[in-house]
Amino acid sequence: MTLANRQGTGVVVPVERNDQRFRAGQGTAAGLSIVFRKFRKALFGKPNSDRSDTEGQFNVQYPEERLALPEAYRNMPILLFDDATGHELCTSCFQCERVCPPQVIHITQAKDPATGKPVPSAAEFIIEYDTCMSCGYCAEVCPFDAIKMDHDYELSTSNHPELDVNYNRLLRPVSYYETIAPTLWNDVRESAMKKLQNNIKRRPGAIGVDHGQKVGAKAAPAAVARPAEPAGGGASAVAPAAKRASVAAIGKSMSEERLAKLQSIRAANQSKRGGAGAPIDTAHAVEADVAVQPSTAQVAAPDAATPGSVAPGATGPVAAVGTNMSEEKRAKLEAIRAAKRAQEGE
């Protein structure tokens, strides 16, 4: 019989209420036997790592341990730039801005300073992370594969304006995206790079490689607090707290003695951390500089994560790669990695 001709059957079944057979205490006894069976398994059975097993312990000690995220996982959108040339993939075609359901993407197209004509590159790119609904349409419609969904989910902050994320902080190197979604990127890499090469030809001067630094210079200092992060995602989990806080405002509306107290606490904290304490503002400046050139250190990151052996301390997306894939995909990934290693070995 072919599929289309198949006719399902079924009847109406009244549910069994067990009115006649019911005896006092019977249900409790039956239930308790199940509880004890489970209890025994939880205590003496071996802990399960495979979540498809139905019995045993499944605890994940969160900040230290993390569940592997699938490649398709989508949290917040990021923008990609090419490692080799430093060119941004975005051409400001406004597709994502148009499709965005909560309309949180704001793009300004770059203009050639000499002629005043528009250039296929974005001068300004802001995504309001606080209103983004993580639907993933922007990544889906992007014809240049410039916008992708990040795996970083630890985005909480006490500084709300920081959530209007500007170009500086949206940009990630392609190598970073490759670590979180290797097969997805491999599917589109060729066409994306080809399109990028075409666009580079149409970008005069430093347009498209400045990574929105001119935007950053104009923006309020708080917004620059987290510049384009280096590859590896895990980096964000290591020391974000120290970078983010903008404490300049505190202390303005305080009495003299409270201010003195606050300062003494801060000094104590500073010495505890062991830093003579570079002022926060200069730290920002240094980081912003780092972001300008895609350093070689960033490119090397993906090799650290070979499937099966995850480097200790590597958290987040890096740990996920390779543990959560079909055989076919894993083989594909291995091939990609081998090719890359060979290329770098030359």
Partner: peptide, 18 residues
């Protein structure tokens, strides 16, 4: 859904237990 065999369970009393 017309290709699958499945039954439709119904209750008799219409209470929370059903």
């Amino acid at each position: 859904y017309d290709r699958f065999d499945f039954d439709i369970p119904v209750g008799t009393v219409g209470d929370v237990y059903d």
